[in-house]
């Protein structure tokens, strides 16, 4: 079983530690992980704006890079949603179908496929507010969204509960969108920024020292908002926490 590691463009450029933690974490569980060197992006920035034709070449490159792997794992919910549900600008060949059907978001892979029981190396003695990104929550099914009725569950929280010392706190609006929204962040900067500041404040009121998420794009946005207003809250990708990042 060969895993192709997909490190999305903005993680590659600005958050290499997230890619490193993902790689190391998978290796700790004995996975055979390879990083295809010519990878760039999944096409989401164009598709998110309705420009599917403009995404076709990027999507094709993605498939070319990953078609030979049994499984593709990425530490980004929105990119996995794009690949699984919206990678439609290219002809749906067997290779494209294989890639779309076998791409996993990291939390899903750890929780559903590897069924990880423990992270003995991980300690995170902090109060953490977990940020359910909308893509992981509603498009990938990480948990029960607050607006649906039914039994409560949360895959990322189930994983985080296995980390020694961690204390999970919950904001008053548990899964309110943080306002990133892909290109929305630049087409509607004021609304986006307001949502980001509200989200940070809600986590702050709940006592969170860290906001942890499975979507780096949401974190990049929230971190930028926090820095702009001087909010002391810190940010970590869930891969870093599960891989034993101290702080």
């Amino acid at each position: 079983m060969r895993i192709g590691l997909f490190v999305p463009c903005f993680i590659d450029a600005f958050y290499p530690q997230v890619g490193i933690a993902t790689l190391e974490l998978l290796e700790r569980f004995g996975c055979d992980v390879d990083y295809p060197f010519d990878q760039t992006c999944c096409g989401q920035p164009m598709v998110n704006s309705g420009c599917h034709a403009e995404a076709a070449a990027t999507e094709q490159l993605f498939v070319d890079n990953f078609a030979d792997y049994d499984v593709i794992v990425a530490p980004s919910g929105s990119c996995v949603h794009q690949i699984r549900d919206n990678l439609t600008a290219v002809e749906q060949t067997a290779a494209v179908k294989h890639v779309r059907e076998n791409t996993f978001e990291l939390v899903e892979y750890l929780h559903d496929v590897l069924k990880v029981e423990a992270f003995p190396w991980a300690k995170f003695p902090h109060r953490v507010g977990y940020h359910d990104s909308c893509n992981t929550l509603r498009n990938l099914g990480h948990g029960k969204p607050s607006e649906l009725r039914g039994p409560d569950f949360s895959k990322p929280r189930a994983l985080l509960h296995k980390v020694e010392g961690i204390e999970l706190v919950s904001p008053s609006r548990p899964d309110e969108c943080c306002g990133f929204g892909g290109t929305f962040s630049v087409t509607e900067p004021e609304v986006s920024g307001r949502m980001g500041r509200d989200k940070i404040a809600d986590h702050g009121r709940a006592g969170a020292e860290y906001i942890v998420s499975a979507d780096t794009s949401c974190l990049m946005h929230q971190q930028g908002c926090a820095k702009r207003i001087g909010a002391p809250i810190q940010f970590k990708h869930i891969a870093e926490v599960l891989n034993g990042s101290a702080a």
Binding site: Y15, P16, Q17, G19, Q223, G224, K227, R228
Partner: peptide, 20 residues
């Protein structure tokens, strides 16, 4: 437009993941 309401991310010391 990004910078109107939020700061840009820092450049990582180790360079990109690709470099690492």
């Amino acid at each position: 437009a990004w910078g109107q309401v939020r700061d840009l991310p820092d450049v990582p010391a180790e360079g990109s993941f690709h470099d690492w």
